[in-house]
């Protein structure tokens, strides 16, 4: 009997509404239309993609000008994932990479496909593969994954300060 009452399960459910805020609207509207829109900090002049919360965390000021970035970019660093993960639909091993989009000053995370995991390199040039236009929503998931462009790798010095 005692064993039966040692633990109980009490499921918890609360629904939340999450506001991304006006600072990120251009970014999400951009994704909805197949464009990657970042924003420039008026103080340090660096370009953020995504413009998370519409703010430059380094300067603590609201981001200003909209800047279209990418679509191509450079893999700065990456992880080869071999762990089956809750809800994961991607076949392992797969590569989760930090990609510095052309024209952006901060990397973002995405998948690398159409390439063996073992062939992915730091400095590799990649481009996005989009979902069918009919499926686009205001989400980064409109991009299925990035794939190699075949261009020569970027020099380490070019992206070293983004690591």
């Amino acid at each position: 009997m005692a064993d039966d009452i040692l633990r109980i399960r009490t499921p918890i459910g609360i629904d939340y509404t999450w506001s991304s805020g006006p600072g990120s609207v251009v970014y999400m509207r951009g994704l909805e239309n197949g464009k990657l829109i970042g924003r420039r900090c008026p103080d340090c002049e660096l370009v953020y993609f995504p413009p998370r919360n519409g703010i430059c965390p380094r300067c603590g000021v609201l981001l200003a000008a909209e800047v279209e970035v990418g679509p191509r970019g450079t893999i700065t660093t990456f992880c080869v994932v071999n762990v089956p993960f809750l809800g994961q639909t991607i076949k392992i091993p797969y590569v989760a990479a930090t990609i510095l989009l052309d024209g952006a000053d901060i990397g973002m995370q995405h998948l690398i496909q159409e390439c063996e995991a073992a062939d992915v390199r730091m400095g590799m040039r990649v481009e996005p593969v989009w979902k069918d236009k009919s499926e686009w929503t205001p989400s980064l998931e409109n991009i299925l994954y990035y794939k190699p462009t075949g261009e020569p790798d970027a020099d380490f010095d070019v992206y070293a300060r983004h690591l």
Partner: peptide, 29 residues
């Protein structure tokens, strides 16, 4: 720990996935 937000792709597969690219950067440097 897995609250979906539109800023990121759910590709990390946990804390290891977050820190592994940083470790790779260290090894490279």
């Amino acid at each position: 720990l897995s609250v979906p937000l539109p800023f990121s792709m759910p590709v990390h597969a946990g804390a290891g996935g977050y820190f592994s690219p940083i470790v790779r950067s260290y090894i490279r440097r």
